[in-house]
């Protein structure tokens, strides 16, 4: 009897009409694009050496995600099934080009430090993944919610890495000194290797938390 109840209660998020709130929230935590789905890793590792870069990258990706999911959702009945991936990529590439030029106009410095990775948002599997899995099947409103949720979740994970790497690797937070002049920076954090280590450590932490929660649930059940 209890087993039936247990299988019934966690179902609502996955069953037919998930609430708007749930569509939004799931990108933040339960289906976090970076930590849970492990999507879009290239920018996550490459541009998170400072907090500013992480934020700009997160915002740019969110913008592209939002705009492309609106358009994919609008055209979902018009686009033939056979050419849908190509059409999605065209839509995405258009908005990435826009984001690229806007960032260049606003801050040349940030544009240079992000380098090719703004253009590479096109091949971020997260965006194509959402277009294929969500926007091409849902209404515009729902797709927007989903895109914003995923985008914020993505930005959050970039920040998780960016903060650790800048504070430890440079002794600064968004350019402001944290530990004072006597701090010896951990150079490895800024280097490519550090990116892998920090992301690995975050994944370990989340794995551990999930494992512990599961064990607690087993104890209570």
């Amino acid at each position: 009897m209890t087993t039936q109840e247990e299988t019934a209660t966690p179902l609502p998020p996955r069953s037919e009409p998930p609430s708007d709130m749930d569509t939004f929230i799931k990108g933040l935590w339960r289906d976090n694009p970076v930590f849970v789905q492990v999507l879009g890793m290239c920018p996550v590792l490459a541009v998170t050496n400072t907090v500013i870069n992480s934020v700009v990258m997160g915002l740019a990706t969110t913008f592209v995600l939002l705009m492309s999911s609106i358009f994919v959702s609008l055209f979902r009945k018009v686009i033939p099934k056979q050419v849908r991936i190509a059409s999605f990529i065209l839509i995405i590439a258009t908005f990435v080009t826009m984001a690229d030029y806007v960032i260049q106009a606003v801050s040349l410095e940030v544009h240079q430090s992000l380098g090719a990775f703004i253009s590479l948002i096109v091949v971020n599997c997260l965006i194509l993944g959402r277009a294929e899995a969500f926007s091409s099947k849902n209404t515009v409103g729902k797709s927007m919610l989903d895109a914003v949720g995923m985008g914020v979740g993505f930005t959050f994970s970039l920040l998780c890495l960016g903060v650790v790497r800048e504070v430890l690797g440079n002794g600064t937070f968004a350019g402001i000194s944290v530990f004072g002049p006597s701090f010896e920076p951990w150079v490895v954090m800024i280097l490519p290797g550090g990116a892998f280590f920090v992301l690995g450590a975050w994944l370990l932490l989340f794995n551990w938390m999930r494992e512990r929660k599961k064990q607690q649930e087993e104890v209570f059940a």
Partner: peptide, 9 residues
């Protein structure tokens, strides 16, 4: 994935 990333590092 965690251990794979560590090795990659």
């Amino acid at each position: 994935t965690a251990i794979v990333l560590m090795i990659a590092g």
